[in-house]
């Protein structure tokens, strides 16, 4: 069973060193901007920006491919939908299938935009560890404190959850083995039967996990953790000139894409 979580690819590229806050803002802004203008020219500028960032990130192409794989069927579906139902004058017809220039153009555009969007997302998650992403979100969520949103506590919950995922996966594996040793079968029968077979795994799993949460709360209190009080950090996030260069490049990309 895999115990690593997230898609993070550890390396020491310039993109890995960029402040997670800058990277998060950059990707969100680019992802929204990508949908504001429908033209091949604008899309090619976003695509070029993604390719440059991809080269700078020094992440092997295979890792990006993993992110693209799940959307491949969507690309196929887009083409099929356009081929079957697009309106306009057909340049090729075979039975009910009418290929129109407009349909093919639209399908190509939608597919390429999807690829660029996934590339932007992958650039963020491949070069930023989930923990630093959480730190970034906590910092960006600070203004929400005025609206009574406890951003630090929320970020702490995600950090603890991330820390516990591998432990819980091992726990599930252990309980399943123990129940198999007692003759339990998990991969037989229909969905409902399988779900019922999991009850002897889920009950101990939840009891152990919630007890662990009690222990965790005790340990936090023993270390004087108090919700609602501003905490200091061992490694505070510090913005550097290179982070502003990245944000400047993002603005330049969006301006260029809106001008072409």
């Amino acid at each position: 069973m895999r115990t690593s979580i997230g898609q993070y690819y550890p390396a020491n590229s310039p993109l890995h060193r960029v402040d997670p806050r800058a990277k998060f803002v950059a990707v969100v802004v680019l992802a929204v901007a990508l949908f504001t203008r429908d033209s091949f020219a604008a899309l090619s500028i976003y695509g070029a920006a993604a390719l440059v960032a991809f080269v700078v990130s020094r992440v092997p192409p295979l890792w990006f491919w993993r992110g693209l794989k799940p959307i491949l069927w969507l690309v196929v579906l887009t083409f099929v939908a356009q081929a079957l139902l697009a309106r306009g004058e057909a340049f090729y017809s075979l039975g009910p299938i009418h290929l129109t220039k407009r349909g093919i153009e639209l399908a190509t555009y939608l597919s390429l935009r999807l690829v660029v969007l996934v590339l932007f997302g992958s650039l963020l998650t491949l070069t930023t560890s989930p923990i630093s992403l959480t730190d970034a979100l906590a910092w960006l969520g600070r203004p929400l404190r005025r609206l009574r949103v406890p951003s630090d506590e929320l970020a702490l919950m995600v950090t603890i959850a991330l820390r516990f995922i591998p432990t819980l996966l091992v726990e599930i594996e252990k309980i399943m083995r123990a129940q198999r040793a007692r003759g339990a079968e998990f991969a037989r029968g229909g969905p409902l039967r399988r779900a019922r077979a999991l009850v002897p795994v889920l009950v101990p799993l939840f009891v152990v996990s919630f007890r662990r949460a009690d222990d965790l709360a005790l340990a936090m209190e023993a270390r004087c953790y108090q919700p609602g009080i501003r905490r200091t950090r061992l490694h505070p996030l510090v913005a550097r000139p290179s982070d502003f260069v990245v944000l400047g490049a993002v603005v330049a990309t969006i301006v260029a894409a809106s001008l072409v």
Partner: peptide, 22 residues
């Protein structure tokens, strides 16, 4: 009001999120 949540609720939610992911 999440601002008045105790440590035990925070810990329970954190573990529940981890469980959901697992």
């Amino acid at each position: 009001d999440p601002r008045h949540w105790g440590v035990s609720l925070i810990a329970e939610l954190a573990v529940a999120i981890g469980l959901a992911a697992a």
